[in-house]
Design a protein around this nucleic acid. Structure first.
Lengths: 329, 329
DNA sequence: CGCGTTTACGTCGTTCGTAACGATA
DNA sequence: TATCGTTACGAACGACGTAAACGCG
């Protein structure tokens, strides 16, 4: 058993059992992988895969167990290399950030721009998805850090650092009835209209849905998307009243106007979520320091080593109080 | 970076930085280890050890981090091999059990004898120590399972399976004053004598000490040892009244006699403690099934996979109700 | 016949052990 | 001078890539 064999094994599993594809991904030849796989199976004394003819058909139960452990080994080997790269002050590398569209579009650009200024050789890869997918990516170790938002408690997995708080606003076409009532809309006001909001509102545990349920009001969703820009567009097209993150408000928009909801819905917190068992490259800490400047870098280190309870983190600033220009500097 | 390099690295660290000794332990030559170590350091780009002249002097901070990860890698590699050996129904192997003297001497023999009957090719290695040492061995992955006792809650680390409950008894020379009071001794009775008990009674959190503290009585320890046989011997020699596990009572002993303490001290539970992240060989499960026959083997598996709360385990039988002969069958 | 896997083979790099050398207490 | 680590060298092994054969749809 060698690290190479385990790497090949994982590549094969992650390439849908296509050895040729896996070989390309690890920059090796297909016969090489075939042979190493065979040797590994021989050493272990059982088949990692079932075969139909010559092709791999499925992962055996035992194979799945082995792959699981192999991933841990690979991840720890990567940790050692990351450790080494940090000590050498390597300025090259990659940063994979799994996040939602709203964060990627409105919150992250300045911090990422700042990061790239300090580390021009670091490639940043955004991995968009829904909250569950994002945390799943983190869980499976396929991303370096996740940026997600919750309306209440922090996400259960990993080490969560609070970044900023934000509220939702209502978005209506200019001249819409709701702009004329002279006060912030109530849930009853909203309930009178079809709503346009995030895909996540479809889930029964969404905070929007819960607010309506608790008020005993019906929630009609005319349109949902993950993408705040789409929501804005469709509000402009008159599909209904938008409910979306304040970050997505564009003051210069001629067609639509945002309305404060004044505490109608619970505030949200955006978190950076990390895996405690993963060594971060220096530039990842740099990103965190820029995106969440109110958190002391040493506290992050300490949280990694000893585990800080979530309550011990400082209350994060509100979105509207953030100095985005400073993050990018 | 190879698995071999990491194995050598760990061997060096565990041999007190003596490469020659480490080489013997891994069945390789000293120059081989030297060279691999150098190559690893070269690849990582920093020193794992500080050197005085040619000798290794200390582990660097970064080196400690690497070793920590290397241990995880080694442990997972061992897990894969264990997985494979189980599938092949290998009947050979080793079982390392870290435990206290009392368990090793009185509780384990029948279960181990039974295990050896079923698996004659398995070498069993008892690693004696105090409770803290034992759990430390488990923590550091240097033992397969730990057998420890507590007077209350289960040990905090790992997966704890309750095996049996037991009480402490008093041990006095024949004809001792306490044999003539015609009732079970009270704490006050005991307090009148110097006691002979386990080394662990020296610790302020020991349940014996706590019982005396709570009763406001002084505890005088004339003699302590880890070894119940020694305690018995010194009670026979008249050093004082013994307080020890009922398992250690030897009815055929001519010199001393045991006295029931009748709930004077809290009951103890003996636990098997496992690491959830360690794959056990089939014979280890066999040992568990023999030592704790009231626990369903499948529940152990399930606890490994999903994590069962400690409260969900069945209440273990009392020591005196155990059928030791059956365990050995 | 294309796609993907296995087999065969030659080359190259690496590991490992032996032996000699060097440094330290 | 004994102990422990490094350097040097040769033999053996193993990994890898190229090329060809094989099976399956």
């Amino acid at each position: 058993m060698t690290l190479t064999q385990l790497r090949y094994l994982i590549a094969i599993a992650d390439s849908g059992l296509n050895i040729t594809l896996a070989a390309e991904r690890v920059h090796a030849t297909q016969p090489g992988l075939s042979k190493q796989l065979k040797q590994l199976e021989e050493e272990l004394g059982f088949s990692l895969f079932t075969r139909r003819g010559k092709s791999l058909e499925a992962i055996t139960a035992a194979g799945a167990q082995v792959i699981e452990r192999a991933r841990i080994i690979q991840s720890e080997a990567a940790n050692i290399r990351a450790l080494a790269a940090n000590l050498r002050n390597e300025a090259q590398g990659e940063l994979r950030i799994a996040t939602t569209h709203t964060q990627a579009r409105y919150a992250l650009p300045s911090a990422i721009a700042g990061l790239r200024k300090r580390y021009p050789e670091v490639g940043v890869h955004l991995q968009p998805g829904g909250d569950a997918e994002i945390l799943d990516l983190l869980e499976r170790g396929q991303t370096d850090l996740a940026v997600v938002s919750t309306a209440g408690t922090p996400p259960p997995a990993g080490l969560a650092l609070p970044v900023y708080r934000w509220d939702r606003i209502a978005l209506v076409p200019r001249g819409h009835a709701l702009t004329k009532i002279g006060r912030a809309p109530t849930l009853a006001d909203l309930s009178a209209h079809a709503l346009v909001s995030y895909e996540s509102s479809l889930k029964p545990e969404s905070s929007l849905r819960r607010a309506f349920d608790e008020a005993g009001l019906p929630l009609r969703l005319a349109f949902t998307a993950r993408d705040a820009d789409l929501i804005r567009t469709y509000v402009g097209a008159g599909l209904g009243v938008g409910v979306l993150a304040e970050m997505a408000l564009d003051e210069s928009d001629r067609d639509v106007v945002g309305l404060d909801l004044d505490g109608l819905l619970p505030s949200c917190t955006t978190w950076i979520v990390l895996r405690r068992d993963r060594v971060l490259r220096e530039y990842a800490l740099e990103f965190i320091a820029r995106f969440a400047p109110h958190i002391d870098r040493r506290d992050v280190r300490r949280a990694f080593d000893h585990g800080i309870a979530t309550d011990d983190w400082p209350v994060p600033p509100r979105w509207r109080d953030l100095d985005l220009a400073r993050l990018a500097a």
